[in-house]
């Protein structure tokens, strides 16, 4: 199976690889895995607590080229978006952009799940702070 040029491009030059401080109250961390293939993906978002705009995004993925490309792509996409906009991101957009074949669709699902769980983590932290302030 051949990878599309876009997948190869992201795979060879992945954007936003790295880590953010997961203890930072404005950083949401999403950690997801694909049991079918054993891939793991960690995606982190730094979110402005006032505007809820994603200011930074980093990822680390141990997996195939498509999983790396999917996570690289979504970190580019979500930067500058509000978390409400980012939550609307769907894996089909990733599939279309990267031209993923059917056997690699689960990689795009993984990236979508990672974004969502990072946002949920941020929201959880924010809610916990609000509770503590009461």
């Amino acid at each position: 199976m051949a990878y599309s040029t876009k997948v190869i491009e992201h795979y060879e030059n992945p954007r936003n690889v790295g880590t953010l401080d997961k203890e930072d109250e404005n950083v949401g961390t999403g950690l997801v895995g694909a049991p079918a293939c054993g891939d793991v993906m960690r995606l982190q978002l730094k979110i402005n607590p006032e505007t809820e705009v994603v200011e930074d995004a980093k990822f680390k993925t141990f997996g195939c080229g498509s999983a790396i490309a999917s996570s690289s792509l979504v970190t580019e996409w979500v930067k500058g978006k509000t978390i409400t906009e980012a939550m609307k991101l769907s894996n089909t957009q990733i599939v279309e952009e990267l031209n993923l074949p059917p056997v690699k669709i689960h990689c795009s699902v993984l990236a979508e799940d990672a974004i969502k769980s990072a946002i949920e983590d941020f929201k959880r932290k924010k809610a916990a702070r609000a509770d503590a302030a009461k």
Binding site: L31, V32, G33, P35, A36, V40, R42, K60, F62
Partner: peptide, 24 residues
Amino acid sequence: NVVSESKADPELLMEVMELREALA
């Protein structure tokens, strides 16, 4: 069905991520 019924728990994912990072 092993794949659809095995939602990995966060602890396992964290452990695996840590191991993979150390190996990398």
